[in-house]
């Protein structure tokens, strides 16, 4: 099972780094002086978690988990544009 052990080794490096980065993003969200800062950090965080999810799927060995990452990546976008439209000061439906 050399492949497996290699993946395990990579995981031991990668997962903590991603977790720490995610925490830093969270700090930015909580600190964020303005709303754009928070939204930016949230979208970074969700892309970060996407990678984490894809990687964990390999690490755990269950492919069925990976679809969540795709959806997260797709939906993170809508928060961006809706907040943008709100900040432009118009009704969201127009």
């Amino acid at each position: 099972m050399e492949v497996h052990s290699l993946i395990n080794t990579i995981a031991m490096v990668v997962i903590p780094i991603y977790a720490v980065a995610a925490l830093l993003f969270v700090i930015r969200v909580l600190k964020g002086p303005t709303i754009p800062d928070m939204v930016l950090a949230i979208s970074c965080l969700s892309y970060d978690l996407c990678v984490l999810m894809c990687f964990l799927a390999i690490y755990i060995g269950s492919s069925l988990l990976v679809l969540g990452a795709l959806c997260l990546a797709l939906w993170a976008y809508i928060l961006d544009i809706s907040v943008a439209k709100y900040l432009e000061g118009r009704e969201l439906g127009e």
């Binding site: 969200v29 709303i35 928070m38 949230i42 965080l45 969700s46 978690l49 984490l52 999810m53 988990l65």
Partner: peptide
């Protein structure tokens, strides 16, 4: 608006938890 964004962060965290 900040509260909504923060609750979105909360949702992302719960998503991670469900995963």
């Amino acid at each position: 608006v900040k509260a909504v964004v923060l609750s979105a962060l909360q949702s992302i965290m719960y998503t991670l938890a469900y995963y």
